[in-house]
Design a protein around this nucleic acid. Structure first.
Length: 568
RNA sequence: GCCGGGGUAGCCUAGCCUGGUAGGGCGCCGGACUCAUAAUCCGGAGGGCGUGGGUUCAAAUCCCACCCCCGGCACCA
């Protein structure tokens, strides 16, 4: 048995997450966490709200509320949504929690004492009217190259030229429109070049990193690491613990990424086991896995390891970083400002969570960007989930119901063809196991579907409806194994679609929760004589008409502001 | 501009690192079956693997050049 820390990227609380962020982080992590628990591993699954930084401050200012008020609300909202999505966090916390703040200050104090922090003066733009320092893209002006009126401080969206905010003609603050001034300020930097050899060693020797994470990390290392500024002039954040930096806060990225550890500490503290977290994070055998989108890679493969190494404590470094590519929406990037995509609160208003879970996991952009489309959603739900899996389960269960009085038949000995199928079941269970251990979630799901497909083929070839007329014994042998396949499906689907899996479990006649069962039980047949529960179709299709209705309903929800993401 | 990643049948996609007759899913056509939510299963058609060179007995896979798409380029999270 191993110890695992499963971490999902911390959603930034300036908005409700959309489906793209969900599949990349929280949902993928949930599948693996659930799977590992069923494997009997010791698992801590953590995440939380990432609530510091300028965008939050700005958003709060826009609404005229304190940032804390805003994030309190958002945190509750998002946490509740994840519950509805059946995400099995052990601890979903937040960066505003005192334990986290204290932990971050403690780590940075250690990093400072170990000589990895130095100061430097830099020039930044300051809006005197708003009283805040403006990140590049919060400055707008006329592009000096093409004359475009709304060029951002970092890049002109019209001609694509990269800009320095000071190059802008008539620069102005995006919030109040006034002209920002250039200020020289002192900031605290982490000396990444000094840490580079150790980071390089870590990346190069980690052969579990997915290709995208490894390539991006190596390419960043190839260019050479530069010192990075770890302080900000925001008020909203964790006060920097460095002498002389009393009015600064820690840059949100360096704060949030430490949350995986503080969340673990908090989890055990609540259980009254204050020291237990060390058995995870200070143990070289612990497997720490992060689930993130590709935009997050450097922070998890380089920044976080850098902080952990620089702290001088013997923290275990990530075992792997399961980084996905992007989920696109109808071929375009999800965009909050352009309102492209579907948000996780909206989705739940359209279909039960497990349909989304299944479809999203099926579309998981494991090796390249994947495009969500309504038609694809329909195809996955109708063909894969309903027709292939659902129909297989249903035809098996109804056949047993009708012909064997709803009881798992007793079998003296299995026919050779049936033994062969039974061996296949066991083989698939192991293959799915192996894929999930390697974070190949989409491939694992495809493999599960394949078992249902094989099940359908098996039934067609063995035709128990014909056999039962001549040999009840042979039909029993067939169905005994077919039922075994249904059981295996219920168990293997549990990490993916826990609610539906449980429904299948119940129909098989079990009264407990399938997620409390062990994974390897999928290899064992159902006990003869067990009485089936009530049998009815578990899934249903989305008709063309219904699909159109879903799209309309989404528009309506937005128009009426029924759902939080419609208002935020 | 620089650095990544992609370009595979009508659509989605695997394979590319570790070269050897291009796999799967959807859709389409034909058939089988009728236990099952008209579901399932089998067979078939359909591909110059972005373009042009090169290496090799052999390239989607390796090398070079070019074209298109997407992302990053560090104070944006």
């Amino acid at each position: 048995m191993s110890r695992w820390v499963i971490g999902a990227a911390w959603p930034y609380t300036n908005a409700v997450p959309h489906l793209g962020t969900l599949i990349g982080s929280v949902l993928s992590a949930d599948v693996v966490a659930r799977f590992l628990r069923m494997k009997g591993e010791e698992v801590i699954f953590v995440s939380g709200s990432d609530e510091h930084g300028t965008p939050i401050e700005v958003e709060a200012r826009k609404r005229g509320v304190d940032p804390k008020v805003l994030t309190d609300k958002m945190h509750e909202l998002v946490a509740e949504l994840f519950r509805k999505w059946n995400i099995s966090f052990d601890n979903y916390t937040r960066t505003e929690n005192p334990l986290h703040k204290e932990f971050v200050r403690e780590i940075f104090t250690k990093i400072y004492r170990n000589g990895y922090i130095f100061t430097k003066e830099i020039e930044v733009l300051f809006c005197e009217k708003c009283g805040i320092y403006l990140p590049d893209r919060f400055v707008e002006g006329k592009c000096p190259f093409c004359g475009y009126e709304f060029a951002k401080g970092d890049q002109c969206e019209n001609c694509g030229r990269l800009l320095d905010p000071v190059q802008l003609v008539e620069p102005h603050c995006v919030f109040c429109g006034s002209k920002p001034v250039v200020r020289k300020v002192k900031h605290w930097f982490i000396d990444l070049p000094k840490l580079e050899p150790e980071i390089r060693k870590y990346i190069e020797s980690n052969d579990r990193l997915p290709e995208n994470a490894k390539n991006m990390s190596l390419s960043i290392l190839r260019e050479g690491l530069r010192p990075r500024c770890v302080t900000r002039d925001n008020k909203w954040g964790i006060p920097a613990p460095f002498p002389g930096a009393e009015d600064k806060t820690i840059y949100v990225w360096f704060d949030a990424v430490l949350g995986y550890i503080s969340a673990t500490i908090e989890y055990f503290k609540k259980l009254g086991k204050e020291e237990e977290w060390k058995k995870f994070w200070l143990n070289p055998d612990t497997k720490v896995v992060f689930f993130i989108g590709k935009d997050n890679i450097p922070f998890h493969t380089i920044i976080l390891p850098a902080l952990l190494i620089a702290s001088g404590e013997k923290f275990v470094l990530p075992w792997t970083v399961a980084s996905t590519e992007y989920l696109l929406f109808e071929g375009r990037k999800f965009s909050k400002s352009k309102r492209v995509g579907i948000w996780i609160d909206e989705a739940l208003e359209l279909l039960p969570a497990d349909y989304w879970r299944f479809a999203l996991l099926y579309m998981r952009p494991e090796t390249r960007d994947m495009s969500f489309s309504w038609e694809l959603l329909q195809e996955i739900v109708n063909t894969q989930l309903n027709d292939v899996i659902g129909n297989f389960i249903h035809r098996v269960l109804t056949f047993v119901k009708k012909n064997f009085n709803g009881e798992i038949p007793r079998v003296e000995k299995l026919y050779p063809e049936d033994v062969r199928f039974q061996e296949l079941i066991v083989k698939v269970v192991d293959e799915v196991d192996n894929l999930l251990m390697n974070m190949r979630i989409r491939d694992a799901l495809l493999k599960v579907i394949e078992l249902a497909r094989e099940g359908n083929r098996f039934l067609n070839e063995r035709a128990p409806w014909t056999k039962i007329k001549t040999s009840r014994e042979e039909a029993a042998s067939i169905m005994f194994v077919a039922i075994h396949a249904v059981k295996a499906l219920a168990i293997m689907l549990a990490p993916f679609i826990p609610t539906f899996a449980n429904e299948i479990w119940r129909q098989l006649g079990y009264s407990d929760d399938v997620t409390s069962r062990r994974w390897d039980e999928a290899k064992k047949p159902v006990t003869a004589g067990q009485k089936l529960g009530e049998v009815r179709p578990v899934f249903k299709k989305i008709s063309n008409h219904e699909l159109e209705e879903l799209k309309k309903r989404l528009q309506k929800i937005r128009a009426e502001g029924k759902v939080p993401s419609a208002r935020i």
